[in-house]
């Protein structure tokens, strides 16, 4: 699905300017632990998180995360949004809880394909 599809499914706001909503997303990873994102996420996936600090953007950049959804009406500050814009990482924000966000995206066909931790 595209990021625009995800925006529609989650009724999400787009936070970063110049965000390319046509980008194709076929995997997702959900965590508040950036250590887990670095250890277990797969490349070019969507990150679903409740954390909104600058480390989330840095982690996404390092781990080749394609886009980020912030859940539960949480929003990063302007500096963090600017950092994401500079790294061309689109940011979405939804009012849905993390559970409902994951559930809706899963129901619409998105999967994790997490790296086997073993």
């Amino acid at each position: 699905m595209t990021l625009e599809d995800i925006q529609t499914i989650l009724n999400a706001a787009v936070l970063a300017r110049r965000a390319d909503l046509g980008v194709s997303i076929d995997r997702a990873y959900c965590a508040d632990l950036m250590s887990d994102v670095l250890a277990f996420s797969v490349t070019n996936s969507l990150l679903i998180t409740g954390l909104t600090n600058a480390q989330v953007i840095r982690t996404a950049e390092i781990a080749d995360i394609r886009a980020i959804v912030f859940v539960q009406s949480k929003r990063p500050d302007m500096e963090t949004i600017a950092l994401a814009e500079g790294r061309k990482i689109p940011l979405l924000a939804t009012q849905l809880s993390m559970f409902d966000t994951c559930g809706k995206l899963y129901a619409n066909g998105l999967r994790s394909q997490s790296v086997d931790p073993a």
Partner: peptide
């Protein structure tokens, strides 16, 4: 609270 310090860093580097 920043999402780090869960004790995965050094093992993840080695990996």
């Amino acid at each position: 609270e920043m999402g780090f310090g869960s004790g995965m860093g050094l093992p993840n580097i080695k990996k």
